[in-house]
Nucleic acid binder design. Structure first.
Length: 298
DNA sequence: AAAAGCCCCTGGACGC
DNA sequence: TGCGTCCAGGGGCTTT
């Protein structure tokens, strides 16, 4: 499911519900997701106040009073829904953010429920269970193996052409995989990499090293790519992220970035670039589908 | 040290 | 209707 724009959308929706609230109790319904839940999670969360909710890469980070971070990764199918405690199922509750048009979550996959002193409950649902939950002292987070080697935030000033060129230097790996690497840029995923490369006019098969070097062309490519990444992420956040599969409305009246995809899922269809006349193709890099126009992406 | 596979898991779409 | 196959927004781990 979630790349940076979707996680950010969830964060924004959840922030108002969580900030300043006390966790009254926690219902943990299985032992693990991708990883085991932290030991004594319910006991360690109950009675604690949430100070704020931030995002790093594709992680949601809830800072708890007392100096711990509750960290949630949504994996591929994780979704978070907030509802009144009186509602005893997910029938009428719509998940946050990108699931505005999605079908309600199947309650069989509600794995964690966090009850708040506001009378609301936060439900974590994840059919494939690729997501996970961590709990650790805030001060240790950036040293944690999952965080210590994360690359820069793509929407931060640290992500610029100079950074990208420097990280790309000498790398034979193709641009698709280079941008998918969370150690380089943190938060891009399979959709937005294809979309960004299209907007930058760069082939996913191009060597990353072609973004580096003193040549004016290399500098220009890096600049185009940085701009394209920032633009597509910002637009997607504005649209409330993307919803794939299961959404029912053919044309969403209140947005949904899936309607703005230029290449993702469009193989066989004409390139949307003015006057290009090319056709979008689907290829595979490391087992993940890549969509691009073979004519205008070089 | 970097890169390519494999794996985790469920469910929907599609072909027969 | 049923069954097999493929595919899906993630990333860690093992092997090369």
């Amino acid at each position: 499911m979630p790349e940076l724009p979707e996680v950010e959308t969830v964060r924004r929706g959840l922030e108002l519900e969580l900030t300043g609230r006390l966790i009254t109790s926690v219902d943990q319904r299985r032992a693990d997701l991708r990883f085991p839940f932290p030991d004594e999670l319910s006991k360690r969360l109950s009675g604690r106040k949430v100070l704020d909710l931030t995002r790093r890469a594709k992680y949601l980070v809830a800072a708890l009073e007392g100096g711990d971070d509750l960290i949630v990764h949504l994996g591929m199918t994780g979704r978070i829904t907030v509802m009144d405690q009186a509602i005893n199922n997910t029938e009428r509750a719509m998940p946050l953010g990108q699931y505005a048009y999605d079908v309600p979550a199947d309650a069989r996959h509600d794995h964690l429920v966090v009850y708040l002193d506001s009378g609301r409950k936060v439900v974590y649902n994840d059919p494939r269970r690729f997501g996970f939950v961590l709990l650790m002292p805030s001060a240790e987070r950036d040293q944690h193996p999952l965080f210590s080697s994360l690359g820069v935030e793509p929407l931060s000033d640290a992500f610029d052409a100079a950074y990208l060129s420097q990280r790309a230097s000498g790398k034979i790996v193709n641009l698709k995989q280079f941008l998918m690497d969370q150690k380089i840029v943190a938060g891009l995923g399979n959709i937005y990499v294809s979309e960004a490369l299209f907007r930058a006019g760069l082939s996913p098969n191009r060597h990353a090293s072609s973004l580096s070097g003193a040549r004016g062309q290399a500098v220009q490519r890096a600049e185009r790519l940085v701009s394209a990444v920032k633009d597509v992420l910002a637009l997607a956040i504005c649209a409330g992220g993307s919803t794939l599969r299961d959404y029912r409305h053919a044309d969403g009246s209140s947005g949904g970035f899936q309607n703005e995809f230029q290449v993702y899922g469009r193989d066989g269809l004409p390139c949307l670039r003015n006057g290009c006349g090319g056709v979008i193709t689907r290829t595979v890099h490391s087992g993940r589908a890549t969509f691009a126009c073979s004519k205008c992406q070089r």
